[in-house]
């Protein structure tokens, strides 16, 4: 099966600082894929390159079968409707209500009637587990967890095939974070979407992630299932997965590796 995302030999430099020096990875259809790594290892930069916010200095990225290096404007627009992005701090438009935030793409890109759009907005809210009254609130009136959910609803507005999440559980309480994890799995199972996320959350990594890439020293130092990654001897993997706390907390899962 062809991968949904294929990243091939990405090199990124900011002035004379090299962030990536030949990054290779691929994401398969319908899986939950995590990008992890220490801070400053260029996880967010890599995600921004995949969603066409930044351009790498060298290398190829193909998303949903399209090469994004030399993509036409029209093709790029089409591709953008095929994915949803959840930013770390939500990035909801502060001057629009939650309903308008979710509706904005539907309004611009489809010819659906107002009543149908309203129904879709309400269905998205209920998908992410928000009460209908939230629709008429402004982003500043929501709690942190609600902002995450609302921006997930917005990311799902166009029924995308691909979902990018930047630290989806950061800033949530542990219960909220696990609920959010469950929500991501549910959405993946129900809507058949592929999820790519940046995360540090051990519970998410051990709980819901199918495959992952570990970024360190400008390279992908380990890629694959948890089992594959745990076999790596790289210092960052050792530090992240094989410390006393992680070993103790997830001994059930680590045991059978």
């Amino acid at each position: 099966m062809k991968p949904v995302i294929k990243v091939d030999g990405i090199v990124t430099r900011f002035e004379d600082r090299t962030i990536h020096d030949g990054i290779n990875l691929h994401v398969n259809k319908n899986e939950i894929y995590a990008i992890l790594g220490e801070s400053g290892s260029g996880k967010s930069v890599l995600m921004k390159e995949i969603i066409m916010l930044l351009r790498p200095n060298a290398g190829n990225i193909s998303v949903l079968g399209r090469e994004i290096n030399n993509i036409s404007h029209k093709e790029a627009q089409k591709l953008r409707l095929d994915w949803g992005v959840l930013f770390q701090f939500g990035a909801l438009y502060s001057s629009l209500t939650i309903a308008e935030n979710i509706e904005v793409q539907l309004k611009e890109y489809t010819n659906l009637s107002k009543s149908m759009r309203d129904r879709l907005v309400r269905s998205k809210l209920s998908l992410v587990g928000l009460k209908p009254y939230v629709a008429n609130l402004y982003p500043s009136e929501l709690s942190g967890g609600m902002v995450k959910r609302a921006s997930l609803a917005r990311a799902l507005a166009m029924d995308p095939h691909l979902l990018f999440l930047d630290e989806p559980t950061s800033g949530l309480d542990p219960i909220g974070a696990r609920n959010f994890d469950k929500l991501i799995v549910d959405l993946r199972n129900l809507l058949g979407i592929t999820v790519v996320m940046i995360t540090h959350d051990l519970d998410s990594i051990f709980g819901i992630v199918d495959r992952m890439a570990v970024l360190a020293d400008k390279h992908v130092v380990a890629e694959g299932t948890l089992k594959n990654v745990l076999q790596s001897q790289h210092p960052f993997v050792e530090l992240f997965f094989k410390n006393e706390y992680t070993k103790e907390r997830f001994k059930e899962k680590i045991k059978d590796v």
Partner: peptide, 18 residues
């Protein structure tokens, strides 16, 4: 079953008119 689950999730609040 997937469609049924989707129906269950979505149909909950669909009718509430704001």
């Amino acid at each position: 079953p997937k469609q049924k689950e989707m129906y269950r999730l979505i149909s909950k609040d669909l009718e509430i008119k704001t």
